[in-house]
């Protein structure tokens, strides 16, 4: 385990708003490709009275922690620590592999976009790595420790609790709703999908209203 201090680099918006979201990004290179989409969604939501904090998982993004020493438990601890610092207990939003650690805030309703299990995350990393000519211990440019790799390979999406799952229209996996859009997280040059960001912000907004009514 490494120190679980929340990253000072987390993107936060609307910290004084009454409803708060904690946002767990996709893992590794998918996080970089999705960042613009996520920040756009959070800006839309801030305009409608919902604040948010996008966490940097230890060893990824702008985090200064050495990824080689990180375990999956560190990511859970970081999400939990970041949530405890927020002005009100947040609802949890997770994108892609971020959903693997979205169950750390006891009882909080969770919203997920296109969640994947850990085996798929590891397979994508290995593929990007072998195609890119990387050699161990780096995988696709990431110095993953053996412990994190083993944790991820065995990680399944946490079940139970109140979960809403949204996927893209072309994704055949089951979901509460399928929305038209582009899988920017699989694009080497992600660009943006303005319509998808607006649709996702609408869905999250309506979900927070439904959660508050329960």
């Amino acid at each position: 385990m490494v120190a679980a201090a929340p990253s000072a680099c987390d993107f936060t918006i609307g910290a004084k708003l009454p409803v708060q979201l904690i946002v767990i990004p996709p893992l590794f290179f998918e996080a970089n490709r999705s960042r613009r989409l996520i920040v756009t969604i959070l800006r839309h939501l801030a305009d409608r009275g919902i604040g948010g904090r996008l966490v940097d998982l230890p060893g990824t993004g702008e985090s200064l922690v050495d990824l080689a020493a990180v375990q999956l438990a560190d990511w859970r601890a970081a999400v939990s620590a970041a949530a405890s610092e927020m002005p009100v207990p947040p609802l949890t939003i997770a994108f892609r592999g971020g959903a693997l650690v979205d169950d750390v805030i006891g009882g909080a309703p969770r919203w997920r976009l296109s969640p994947v299990d850990g085996a798929a995350v590891v397979r994508a990393l290995r593929r990007a790595s072998s195609l890119g000519g990387n050699r161990p211990p780096r995988l696709a440019g990431y110095p993953l420790g053996a412990a994190l790799l083993a944790d991820l390979a065995a990680a399944t999406l946490p079940a139970g609790g109140r979960v809403r799952t949204v996927r893209l229209a072309d994704d055949p996996a089951t979901a509460d709703r399928h929305l038209p859009g582009t899988p920017l997280w699989h694009r080497a040059e992600p660009g943006e999908d303005v319509a998808l960001a607006a649709l996702l912000a609408d869905d999250i907004h309506d979900w927070t209203v439904a959660c508050a009514a329960l």
Partner: peptide, 28 residues
């Protein structure tokens, strides 16, 4: 020109998601 090695990785992973198959590294 768009199809470099990182793009191939994303392409194959998205095909896996949409078709519901698993593509092994040694098949690529």
């Amino acid at each position: 020109p768009e199809l470099d090695s990182m793009a191939v990785a994303g392409l194959l992973t998205e095909i896996e998601d949409r078709v519901g198959i698993v593509i092994e590294d040694d098949e690529v």
